[in-house]
Design a protein around this nucleic acid. Sequence first.
DNA 1: ACACGACGAGACGGATCCGTTCCGTCGTGT
DNA 2: ACACGACGGAACGGATCCGTCTCGTCGTGT
Lengths: 190, 190
Amino acid sequence: MLREDVTDAIRSAVFDELAAVGYGRMSIEGIARRAGVGKAAVYRRWRSKLPLVLDTVSAVAVQGMPAPDTGSLLGDVRLLLEVTARALRHPVASQIIPDLLAEAARNPEIAAALQTALRDTQRGISAAVVRKAVERGELAAGTDADLSLDLIAGPLYWRLAVIRSPLPKGYLDSLAAATVTALKAAGAAR
Amino acid sequence: MLREDVTDAIRSAVFDELAAVGYGRMSIEGIARRAGVGKAAVYRRWRSKLPLVLDTVSAVAVQGMPAPDTGSLLGDVRLLLEVTARALRHPVASQIIPDLLAEAARNPEIAAALQTALRDTQRGISAAVVRKAVERGELAAGTDADLSLDLIAGPLYWRLAVIRSPLPKGYLDSLAAATVTALKAAGAAR
DNA sequence: ACACGACGAGACGGATCCGTTCCGTCGTGT
DNA sequence: ACACGACGGAACGGATCCGTCTCGTCGTGT
């Protein structure tokens, strides 16, 4: 019977190691060292680095974020941006996510794992927000779901994970307002 | 006298190696092998991996992109998106840029190099586009330059470098129209 | 109370890379 | 024409990691 506390220590060490050195440089030796664990304890659970990371990442993704439902498109977008910003501010997340996304361009299995862990979740939430706005008459019926996700998620991800600049006071409000306007324009354009 | 063809072969190999394995796994041994060159030829030019990459990246960034000037905000944004999309479609670029950006979160020297190579350039172009639109009366005078860059660059980078989905026909047109609307809203909000 | 087995530690042979040093060759500048 | 030096190749000791395999210890289930 594998000890759960050891499993947890390893999973936690994977996150720290991913954040510290990235997937490329990550080593099982380093993870075991960081977790205070023998290498055998790791190999007893996962065959290699890839399944270890895939499993650890998938385990986190299960925590599905519920779609916001504030009654207005602006409110939903504002809340969605707020939650996303909070997630992307965690130093560990903002290190690991871009790192794994870059690695996904090279590794189809990582790409698939991130697809279901991040992309599908966000796409679903974004689609739900748009759908409800259409029902309320705030957006045109044909509003493109993919373009909507790009408009909602793109600027904030760019700001927090690419440029890595801080968010000035009131930034999320301005961004939410601009995004809602963009969504309306995107629906009207077709 | 160092031979220039050898220097070029090394620089080219750096790009291929960065795209193939990423900065973390990149090795001077691998670069020399790929370039068909002795390791000494590399060490004769650069002291280690970091200056090699910094120098190679900086060399590319010199090719400054001119700010678009089509006479209308929509035209400028549309052209800017087109040029950016073309750049981000190059497989090598779309592999290297996210990889180095992720590494930049760990390495201040890489961060500084990318700052001047990418960020400052884009920021300048975006600011010029916004400034001209303000002069034409298309945007309010106080339109925030940082938010504008986020709105212009974010969705397309998200789409091409994060999600990595193809651009449907007419996507750039819809995106440009939505972005222009967002920019106008961003200016009016303050 | 006892046995099973997971545990941390670490040694192992093999692999890869580091940065340096030595060759013998070949291109270049004067 | 000649010498200087950069070249590709290869080897070097040292370092790190791989994946496996031993230890002796210690926790757990029955």
